[in-house]
Simulated assay, not measured.
Amino acid sequence: MRQQDLPTPRRRPGARVLAGALGVLALGGCASGELRGNASTGWLPPSVTESGETVTRLWIGAWIAAIAVGLLVIGLIVWCIVAYRRKQDDTELPVQLRYNIPIEILYTVVPMLMVVVLFYYTARYESELVGTSKQPDLKVNVVGKQWSWDFNYVNDDVHEVGTQAILTGKPGAEETIPTLYLPVNERVEFVLTARDVIHSFWVPAFLQKMDMVPGRVNRFQVVPTQEGTFKGKCAELCGAYHSQMLFNVKVVSRAEYDQHMADLRAADQTGLLNNTLNREQLMKGQLDNETVDGGN
């Protein structure tokens, strides 16, 4: 038989899985410093908000529980293989049992307890993360639109209009991305609305995101604890240029935040954008001083 007639060996699924895992690890090593976690955070991005610490605790706790259950299952499998392996002098089949009450109770009760515990902690932390009962120091109405962001600084009665990011791969692209300013160590309530389709407000360093649904107002609060510039993006597929729906978040001192508000007033960006404006009106620069959320 000629060499070219030999059947081509098929790759094993395990090899493909291993190659994929190595690729993920390699790409993970290329992540920016802002997004790179470590063992202490469960390889989540380091949190820069108070609520982010809650997310990290829940994440690590869930992984510990999952690893413990996995080790238990693997241990039981190995024990069964070793303890009940067939011996050379075995001449009879083992006795078949119809019921084993202790085992049935074990595999019924234990999973139920696991689900109850996971549900309890998830519900507890979720109510804490999305709760808005505390009085915020300031409110920011974030408006999602195809494919950028508008920011209404409610307390300061100023606004900022964002335009779609122009990604050329060259230096200077950051200047085309809208920037949200927040004061450090102050409670901020985000009032999230959308002009056209469903978007999602996501700052990875906050370890928290929330959808923006047309005709609906969603809210959550954060307390930034670290100054710096962080990346934000839309996390809901919203059209052709979804990948370019980017923004920056600058967490700054109160003095720098007040200066930025003064700069917006000097640029005649006073008043708040009306959430009912459509894209055509925004492109013409028509502004409305009506406040969002009833002026609250």
Rank of each mutant, 00 (worst) to 15 (best):
Q3C: 15
Q4M: 15
D5V: 06
P7T: 00
T8N: 12
L18I: 12
L27M: 06
S32M: 04
L35Y: 10
L44C: 11
P46C: 13
S47W: 11
S47E: 14
E53D: 09
V55Q: 13
T56N: 03
G61E: 09
G61K: 04
W63C: 10
I64E: 14
A66D: 12
W79M: 13
R98H: 13
Y99G: 14
E104M: 03
P111R: 01
Y125V: 10
E128L: 09
E128H: 07
Q135T: 00
V143D: 01
K145G: 06
K145T: 05
T163M: 04
G169L: 07
A173W: 12
E174P: 10
I177L: 08
L182A: 01
V188L: 01
F190D: 00
V197G: 15
L207T: 05
G215I: 10
N218M: 09
R219N: 00
F220W: 03
T229Q: 10
K231S: 11
K233A: 11
L246H: 04
V252A: 05
A255V: 02
Y257V: 01
H260Y: 05
M261F: 03
M261N: 01
A262P: 09
L264P: 02
R265S: 08
L273E: 10
N274I: 03
N275I: 06
T276P: 08
R279P: 13
D288K: 04
